[in-house]
């Protein structure tokens, strides 16, 4: 007999995977349909519109709500994967070596020199960048929406 907690975790995983899967499938379906429409010669067919996306989300709303309610219930009841907080095996890591390599509390001379050198270099590079227009480039990109960056176009 499966423990209720374990059962909950399995159902929650299935709900989450299903929600994500159907959200992905809705987009893929919309795209495939739209691409076929465009291929058939409809030059101005818009694959996605606010209305179409709204309708698709509305279809999935019951599932999204069910997943949300189930998740909140789990939180309220304090259900979670207990093994998550446990120690994991070192799995091929040598503890002794690990200690030797850990970053020590006292910063060594070498580290301090490296810190100062990089700090100075960074400031010089920034000043050079302001001088050669690199800073302006950052502004130019940030001041208008990069439709490619966000996946719009």
């Amino acid at each position: 007999m499966m423990k209720p907690k374990k059962l909950y975790l399995i159902i929650e995983s299935a709900l989450l995977a299903l929600t994500a899967g159907l959200l992905a499938a809705a987009a893929v379906r919309m795209y495939v349909h739209g691409a076929a429409q465009i291929a058939s010669g409809d030059l101005f067919y818009y694959i996605y519109t606010r209305e179409k996306v709204g309708a698709a989300l509305l279809h999935l709303l019951p599932l999204i709500c069910a997943t949300a309610v189930f998740t909140v219930a789990g939180w309220v009841l304090g259900i979670r994967d207990e093994s998550a907080g446990k120690l994991v095996a070192m799995d091929g890591i040598d503890a002794k070596e690990s200690v030797k390599k850990a970053v020590p509390k006292k910063t060594g001379r070498r580290e301090r020199i490296l810190q100062s050198t990089i700090l100075i270099l960074a400031i010089v590079l920034i000043l050079l960048g302001i001088w050669n227009g690199g800073m302006g480039d950052v502004f130019d990109k940030g001041a208008a929406i990069c439709t490619e960056c966000v996946g719009l176009g």
Binding site: A20, L23, A24, A27, V28, M30, Y31, G34, A35, Y46, I47, Y48, T49, R50, V53, T147, E148, G151, L152, G153
Partner: peptide
């Protein structure tokens, strides 16, 4: 609202990756 018209394969692919 009209930004939706830009969405094509790139958005579909990025949406799936995000999920």
């Amino acid at each position: 609202a009209t930004s939706f018209y830009q969405l094509k394969l790139l958005f579909t692919q990025k949406w799936v990756i995000m999920l």
